[in-house]
Write a protein that binds this DNA or RNA. Structure first.
Lengths: 129, 129
DNA sequence: CATTTAACTTGTTTTTTGCAAGTGAGCTGG
DNA sequence: CCAGCTCACTTGCAAAAAACAAGTTAAATG
C-alpha cells in the first residue's frame, strides 16, 4: 500500500485504521471471539466494515479464523503470535489515554491495571481467556 | 466523537487516522517543522488532508503552531508535552514493524536505534532538534 | 517590481464508511 | 421434521472522507 519502507508506515498499513485496534481490544481485553461479539462493540462498527477488517487482519496474519467446534454456523477468531505482539502498543495507547482523557465518562479500569502491573497487564491481554 | 469512554478509543480519536502518526514521525524522528516539510513526506499526503490533520492535532493539544521568527510567511509546528508523550507509542509500533516487516525495501535504521537503546531513542524523538 | 515561495483554500473525482436490508447455512422448540 | 430463529456474512445505496488539480494571498527575493 505505502511503499516507503518505514516500519511505522508498515504498522499503520496493517492495523492503523479507525477500527482494527478496537476489534483487537475486544479480543485482547474482553476475550471476545466471534463476529457477533465484535458487532456489539460500544463504538458501533458497521457490519460490512467489520467483515472487511477481519478479512484484512487475517490476510496480514494478525488473527486466524477457525470453525467453532461447538457450533457449526459460528467461527472463532483468535490472535496469532504476530497479533499478540501488538499488546505493548495497545498498552501504551491505553496508558496515554489514561493520562490525558479528562472527560467525565472516561473509564479507568484497564488504565489502572496497566499502571499497577504493566507486565502483568500485557501478559493478560496477550493470552485472553 | 466516540463516546465509549475507552482510553484506547480516546487515543484513536486523537491520532488514530491514516496520517497523524506519520506527520508526528516527521516531527519526532526527522525534526521537521513546517507545512512544506510535511508535504514532502515519502508516503505522499494531500495538501487539504495535511491542513486538516494539523488543525486537528493542534485542537487536540498534540502540537502547537507559532510564527517562524526568521521568515514571516512561515509557521513552525512543534510538539507539546502531550505530543511528546506519544513517543512510547511510536517506539512500540516501530519495534513491531521492525520485527515483522520482511519486505526488501524495509528500512531498519530507526528500528536498530530503538532496539539498541530504547530509552535513548525515546528521549531523542521526544526532543527532536 | 516581477517572480518565486510558503501556506493554505477551493472544486471535483474517487474511495471509504455508514446504514438498511437481504441471503443462506445451520440450529432449535413444538 | 419443519417453521422460525440465529449467525455470519453480502449487497445496494447514501454520506463522508481522501486524493487530485488548480487557485489564492501574503511575504520574500533577485
Amino acid at each position: 500500500m505505502r511503499q516507503s519502507g518505514c516500519p511505522l508506515a508498515f504498522g499503520l498499513d496493517t492495523f492503523g485504521d479507525r477500527w482494527s485496534l478496537l476489534v483487537l481490544r475486544e479480543m485482547m481485553v474482553r476475550g471476545k471471539k466471534t463476529y457477533g461479539d465484535f458487532l456489539e462493540i460500544d463504538e458501533g462498527i458497521a457490519t460490512n466494515v467489520l467483515a472487511d477488517r477481519l478479512k484484512h487482519l487475517e490476510t496480514e496474519g494478525i488473527i486466524s479464523k477457525s470453525r467453532d467446534p461447538d457450533n457449526r454456523r459460528s467461527y472463532l477468531y483468535t490472535l496469532t503470535d504476530k497479533g499478540r505482539d501488538l499488546a505493548p502498543i495497545l498498552t501504551e495507547i491505553i496508558l496515554w489515554g489514561g493520562k490525558y482523557d479528562k472527560r467525565p465518562q472516561a473509564r479507568r479500569e484497564a488504565v489502572n491495571k496497566a499502571k499497577k502491573n504493566r507486565k502483568g497487564f500485557e501478559a493478560a491481554i496477550r493470552s485472553p481467556e
